[in-house]
Amino acid sequence: DETGKELVLVLYDYQEKSPREVTIKKGDILTLLNSTNKDWWKIEVNDRQGFVPAAYLKKLD
């Protein structure tokens, strides 16, 4: 059920640097789980959840 889920576009590649982070690729469109922290957003990638720098993402309307 995708209702109410926010999507984000990945602006730059990011390689995870800790187990709490996930790797993302430029151009991916992913589900945003939590954006309350202005610097690190929690997203879902391939059934994995983790954090990436918010500056690497853009919210889609």
Rank of each mutant, 00 (worst) to 15 (best):
D1H: 14
E2V: 14
E2H: 15
E2T: 15
T3H: 15
T3P: 12
T3N: 13
T3K: 11
T3D: 13
K5P: 13
K5Y: 12
K5L: 11
E6P: 12
E6I: 14
E6R: 13
E6H: 13
L7N: 05
L7C: 08
L7E: 07
V8P: 00
V8I: 05
V8R: 01
V8M: 03
V8L: 04
L9Y: 10
L9N: 02
L9M: 09
L9F: 08
L9T: 05
L9S: 04
V10W: 01
V10L: 01
V10C: 10
L11F: 02
L11T: 04
L11Y: 02
L11A: 03
Y12L: 11
Y12S: 10
Y12F: 14
Y12Q: 15
D13Q: 03
D13P: 06
D13F: 04
D13H: 05
D13N: 08
D13Y: 03
D13V: 02
Y14Q: 01
Y14S: 01
Q15H: 12
Q15F: 15
E16G: 13
E16K: 11
K17Q: 15
K17M: 10
S18G: 15
S18P: 04
S18F: 07
P19E: 10
P19N: 12
E21D: 04
V22G: 02
V22A: 08
T23E: 03
I24C: 08
K25N: 09
K25Y: 13
K25H: 11
K25V: 10
K26A: 11
K26V: 07
K26T: 07
G27W: 06
G27P: 01
D28I: 05
D28T: 11
D28R: 05
I29P: 00
I29E: 03
I29L: 07
I29M: 06
I29G: 00
T31N: 09
T31K: 15
T31I: 15
T31R: 15
T31A: 11
L32C: 09
L32D: 00
L32A: 03
L33H: 05
L33C: 06
L33R: 04
L33N: 03
L33P: 00
L33Q: 03
L33D: 01
N34D: 14
N34L: 09
N34M: 08
S35N: 07
S35T: 09
T36M: 11
T36G: 09
T36L: 10
T36E: 12
T36K: 12
N37Q: 11
N37R: 09
N37L: 09
N37G: 11
N37W: 07
K38C: 08
K38G: 10
K38S: 12
D39W: 14
D39I: 13
D39M: 14
W40L: 04
W40T: 02
W40M: 06
W40E: 04
W41M: 02
W41V: 02
W41F: 04
W41L: 02
W41G: 00
K42R: 09
E44D: 07
E44L: 10
V45A: 11
V45Q: 07
D47Q: 13
D47P: 03
D47L: 10
D47G: 15
D47S: 11
D47F: 10
R48Y: 06
R48P: 00
Q49Y: 07
Q49R: 10
Q49E: 11
Q49W: 08
G50S: 04
G50D: 02
G50H: 06
G50W: 05
G50P: 02
F51L: 08
F51M: 07
F51D: 04
F51P: 00
F51V: 06
F51H: 06
V52K: 00
V52W: 00
V52F: 02
V52N: 01
V52I: 03
P53D: 01
A54S: 14
A54Y: 03
A54M: 05
A54P: 05
A55W: 12
A55F: 09
A55Q: 12
A55E: 12
A55V: 12
Y56M: 09
Y56E: 01
Y56A: 13
Y56G: 06
Y56L: 10
L57G: 01
L57W: 01
K58A: 14
K58H: 13
K58L: 14
K59Q: 06
K59T: 06
K59P: 09
L60R: 04
L60P: 03
L60C: 08
D61T: 13
D61V: 12
D61I: 13
D61Q: 11
D61H: 13
